[in-house]
Each structure stands twice: as structure tokens, then as C-alpha cells.
């Protein structure tokens, strides 16, 4: 059964290996050059000179422009899309192709029970899915490591509000892609078992996985662990934007909190209560942004921020991976039960 599974999977395996090899080559060349830039910028020795913030932010500024940013975007998009593609092209056709061509009748009449047939198929190709996602994620994570270190070092001077914890990057690095790949694969097989026709099953897989990927970072991930609330002095925080609007309305947003993930922020008083009106006659029209900010600080305005601290990054990675692996196991068990107990034709 192993042999047949591998033989049927060979074209897909070769295609996946080719994509991974190209990605690896490109990321290796660019990653070495990025690591070189990190070193030549002088960041590794910055603690001795106490200029980590400025060197790191300068490095980030440079890494954000030009080909690095472009490549990072493309590579992250590949890691983000890989589970969906795996679910569609490996998961959905796994059973439906056998149904559509009737070959399950051939396979099920060899001396191999259908428990083993579906078990080996699910197990081997599920493992291959996870391995492919792990390799892709590992490469991108390695490539982006200097940027992640610089984000931590730059602190509030960081020129970017994006870090490895913000949703798009979180899903494209670390170990969560493994969980997504297992889930998407099992989802594809389940769609195939239920819909029984390949192309509609692929469409269902894509739609369902996209819906999960849309809902998860917006409504579920923020609540996996209760977020931290902090009220900070304006000088101690990296602001993403501030200003006054009509009717003295006040607007203030925190841009970044180290390498943490900002969920929401607003202007507040010392007790953390929302301030929605500009106090003490401060105005951007009179003295410019710097004076306005100083005026707000004098009048006791602070920034309240709800966030997940950067130190929780790996906890979140493990939680989320575990959740998706459990979901994948549930779906795979359903497929196993359904295929081995019920007739396919």
C-alpha cells in the first residue's frame, strides 16, 4: 500500500520539491546578503556602543525598501498559500479521483483492507503535507531572523509596525504552517469524501480554508490567551498616528509595542479611561505635531493599548499548531471511519 501511495503521489511530490528547491535557492542567496547587511550595519556589536536602537531601525529601514521587502512578501505569500494549495491539490482529489475513475474497486480488491488503504493514504500524504509546509516555513523564518532581531532591538524607534507576531507574518513563519497544512489536507480529503467530485471538492476546500484563515486571526487568535492592557506615557510609546478632528475630537493610535501584537489602542487618562476630546486647548493647527503631542502629555493624556506581548509568540505558535493538528486529526478520523465503513459507489 505504501508503494502504491508513493507511486500515485510521485508527480505531486516532484512538483512540490521543485517549488521548494527554487524557493530555497532564492531565499538562500538573498538571506545570506541580508545577514551580511545585518553584520556590516554593526548591530551584533551595538550593545557595546549603546546605539542598538538607531542601528536596528536603520537596518529595518533599509531592509524594508527594495528587493528584500518584495522577496519577503512573495515568500510569505507562498507559505500562506501552501496549505490551501495542498488541501486543494493533494487533499481533495485523494479519494475523489479514485471514485471518479472507479480505481478504488481495483485497489479494494487487492489483499489490503480498506482500513489500511485509507490509513496509509491519509498518513503518508498528511505527513508529506506537514513536511512541505515545515520546510517552507523554516526557510522563510531563517531568512527573516535578522529582521525579527532588529525589531526587538529597535524598540519604539522601529520604523515598521509589522513584526513576526502581526497576523500575516505570524501565519507564515514558525511552526503554525505545519498545523495549517495538516488541517487543509484533512479538510480537502473530507470535502472529497462528502462531495465525491474532484473539482467541486477543490472549490469547497478553497472556500472553507479561506474562511477559516480569514476568521481565525480576526476573531479567535486574539482570545487564545487574555491580552495585556497597558496605559503608557506618550513619550514611552511608538505612536502610529495622532491628531485632532472636528469638534475637538482626539485621535491617537499606538503603532508598535516592541515585537508584540497590538490588538487595539486609544487615548486615555491615567486610569485608562477613554479620552475622546482634546484637553487643555491643544491643537495641531497652532504649533505642529510635536507641540501638540507635548501639550497632550502635559494635560495627562496617555496611550492605552491592548496587546499580546512579544514574549508570547512561541506560546501562541504552539497553541495554534496544536489546535489545527487536533482539528486535522478529527477530520482525518471522520474520513477514515466514513471510507472504511461506507460504500463509495
Amino acid at each position: 500500500m505504501m508503494w502504491l501511495t508513493w507511486r500515485q503521489f510521485r508527480p505531486q511530490a516532484i512538483a512540490a520539491a521543485a517549488v521548494l528547491a527554487v524557493l530555497a535557492a532564492v531565499l538562500l542567496v538573498s538571506g545570506l546578503s541580508l545577514a551580511h547587511l545585518y553584520t556590516t550595519t554593526g548591530i551584533p556589536a551595538c550593545h557595546a556602543h549603546h546605539d542598538c536602537e538607531s542601528l536596528a531601525s536603520g537596518f529595518l529601514m533599509h531592509a524594508r525598501s527594495g528587493s528584500y521587502d518584495r522577496l519577503h512578501g512573495i515568500a510569505a505569500a507562498i507559505v500562506l498559500l501552501a496549505p490551501a494549495v495542498i488541501g486543494m491539490f493533494w487533499g481533495a482529489p485523494l479519494i475523489t479521483r479514485e471514485i471518479e475513475t472507479g480505481t478504488f474497486r481495483l485497489a479494494w480488491n487487492q489483499s489490503v483492507s480498506r482500513y489500511r488503504w485509507i490509513g496509509v493514504k491519509l498518513g503518508l500524504i498528511g505527513l508529506a503535507s506537514m513536511a512541505a509546509a515545515a520546510v517552507a516555513s523554516l526557510m522563510v523564518t531563517w531568512w527573516a531572523a535578522p529582521i525579527n532581531r532588529a525589531v526587538v532591538l529597535a524598540g519604539s524607534a522601529s520604523p515598521t509596525t509589522v513584526n513576526r507576531f502581526t497576523p500575516a507574518a505570524f501565519a507564515a513563519s514558525g511552526i503554525v504552517p505545519v498545523g495549517y497544512a495538516a488541517f487543509a489536507f484533512a479538510l480537502g480529503v473530507t470535502a472529497g469524501v462528502l462531495v465525491r467530485r474532484t473539482v467541486p471538492a477543490m472549490a469547497v476546500t478553497l472556500a472553507a480554508f479561506a474562511a477559516v484563515q480569514l476568521a481565525w486571526p480576526n476573531w479567535i487568535r486574539p482570545h487564545l490567551i487574555a491580552p495585556v492592557h497597558a496605559v503608557l506615557a506618550l513619550g514611552k510609546v511608538s505612536l502610529g498616528g495622532f491628531g485632532d478632528g472636528p469638534g475637538n475630537s482626539l485621535f491617537l493610535a499606538v503603532g508598535s509595542k516592541g515585537d508584540g501584537w497590538i490588538l487595539s489602542s486609544h487615548a486615555a487618562n491615567a486610569a485608562g479611561q477613554v479620552i475622546s476630546r482634546v484637553p487643555g486647548g491643544c491643537s495641531t493647527q497652532t504649533g505642529g505635531p510635536g507641540a501638540f503631542l507635548a501639550c497632550l502629555a502635559r494635560n495627562g493624556v496617555r496611550a492605552a493599548v491592548t496587546y499580546q506581548p512579544g514574549s508570547r509568540y512561541w506560546t501562541f505558535q504552539w497553541y495554534e499548531t496544536a489546535i489545527f493538528l487536533v482539528l486535522a486529526a478529527v477530520l482525518a478520523t471522520f474520513c477514515y471511519w466514513r471510507v472504511s465503513r461506507r460504500a463509495l459507489a
Binding site: 498616528g241 491628531g243 478632528g245 472636528p246 493610535a253
Partner: peptide, 11 residues
């Protein structure tokens, strides 16, 4: 200013 505020709020 209003436009910047609006866009920051949207963001």
C-alpha cells in the same frame, strides 16, 4: 489633518 486622522483610524 482630518484625512490623516481618518486614515489612521481606518488603519
Amino acid at each position: 489633518t482630518f484625512a490623516s486622522n481618518f486614515i489612521s483610524e481606518v488603519k
